[in-house]
Simulated assay, not measured.
Amino acid sequence: MADIHVEEFYKDAAVALVQLYSAFPRRVDLFVEDIAGPDEPDEFGLHSKRHMACFGALIWLAEEGFLRYVDTIRQEALDQAILTQEAFIRLSSPAPDVLVQELRGSEEPAGTLLPPSLQEDLSSHIHLVRTALKSRHSVRIGRAVHATLFTSR
């Protein structure tokens, strides 16, 4: 089992990428609270470790070339964020068949024949990330995000 902070990173990255993909090509504000949940700063105005970890994940995605943004809104959001070309292409592209079968599991009956265009859509990285998020299964989320972010491009 992975460390909890790594599992949270995968979930935060998945939610952010899905939000940006759904809005593409519009720029949107990415609020940490929408991704990691509500946060009440302490008496000194400092956010929780969980909030800061999510904010850090968003910054990391930007530093690694998956998204761009105009500015930060304090430590609460990224202003006018958008996927990079590389991230959009990666999310739209088909994932390896082995990963598709593993993450899809028993979702669809064996022997189901779908039109090629639908099969391609259902095997894209973004579909796998969305499906993993819906499952709420941290291992599936981690595998889908890991394959999307770290598989050789």
Rank of each mutant, 00 (worst) to 15 (best):
A57L: 00
E8Q: 09
R90T: 14
T151E: 08
V70L: 11
D34Q: 12
F31W: 10
L133Y: 04
E40H: 01
S117E: 14
F44Y: 04
D71N: 15
G45C: 01
E108F: 13
V100D: 08
L17V: 01
P116I: 04
P96L: 15
Q19N: 07
I35Q: 03
P115Y: 07
S138F: 12
M1V: 08
L17K: 11
E40A: 06
V70F: 00
R130H: 02
G142K: 12
R26M: 03
G65S: 03
A95C: 05
A16V: 15
A53N: 15
Q19P: 00
S138L: 03
P109Y: 12
L99R: 07
M52S: 10
H127S: 06
L133F: 12
Y21V: 00
E7I: 03
L17G: 13
F150Q: 02
D29N: 15
A57K: 06
R74A: 12
E8K: 13
E107M: 05
L113Q: 07
S106W: 05
L114A: 06
G37D: 00
L78S: 12
D12A: 12
M52F: 01
Y10Q: 05
E108P: 03
V129K: 05
H146Q: 13
E76T: 15
F24R: 13
Q85L: 09
Q80G: 07
F150Y: 14
E76H: 14
R27K: 13
K49H: 02
L17E: 03
H51F: 14
V18G: 07
E102Y: 12
P116Y: 01
H127M: 13
F9A: 09
H125S: 03
E64D: 06
Q19W: 01
A23P: 10
R104D: 00
V28Q: 09
S152E: 08
D12F: 10
M1C: 07
A87L: 08
F66Y: 13
R153H: 11
G105T: 12
F31N: 06
V139K: 15
A23F: 13
D29I: 04
F24D: 13
A87K: 03
V139W: 10
S124N: 04
S22I: 00
D71Y: 13
R50L: 06
S124F: 06
L91N: 05
V6D: 08
L113H: 12
L67S: 02
Y10S: 12
G142P: 11
L30S: 08
I141G: 00
R143Y: 04
